[in-house]
Amino acid sequence: MSVRESAAVRTDLTEAAGVDVVPGPNLVLGGLEAFSHPELPALVVAAAAAGFVRIGLETGGGPLNVGENAAGAIHVGVRHLVIRFVPSVADDDPVATPIRASDAALAGIRAFISAAAAVDQKVAVSAVVPACRHTAPLLPVAVAELADAGVGAVRLVADGEGAYGSAAIAHVSAACDTGVVNGVWVEVEGIVLPESHAAHCIIGDG
């Protein structure tokens, strides 16, 4: 994995300053994993100095559990998180501790929200979840778990080509309903849902 030079990122920030997207975020520092950039705090501060007021990070969520990352992100000015979330199931091994890959992300979300609450700071956390025929049955539970962790919106993105069978579409629709019941807005990209759930479908970039 490689990271972009800070100077190049700063140049981009300066050029993009003034772009005002409401409701936000105005700016998302992303890539494979925002926290892998060694100068992330300085870049966030630079973004704020450039005039961005709704700064977000794209992350898998796990790094938020490390050290003071969650509180530090709030401190330097991060107000939005976009979590790349992959639903997973517990290992079938009855001896192994049933920790799933997605647990770290959920814990990271909680850490960030808790850190924000500690300083009475409003934040917005969304998640992007790949949806394919294989993961479709996990989606309703994934949405419920994300809701429980404090996520406000989930984008289910079609992963790969090919048609989705009626069973998969039923799972995706159920994920949308799970979101509404739990106060989380779910939008679906790249999958055609029945008319009853068309309100959740987005076209293009949404």
Binding site: V22, P23, G24, P25, A48, F52, V53, R54, I55, G77, R79, H80, K122, V123, A124, G152, A153, G179, V180, G183, V184, W185, A199, H200
Partner: peptide, 22 residues
């Protein structure tokens, strides 16, 4: 009824995004 509830949830999310700022 369903679309009212959807609109409430979506509106809340938009509000939250707007209020999460420096």
């Amino acid at each position: 009824y369903v679309d009212l509830r959807r609109a409430e949830v979506r509106a809340t999310w938009i509000q939250r995004q707007y209020e999460a700022r420096l």
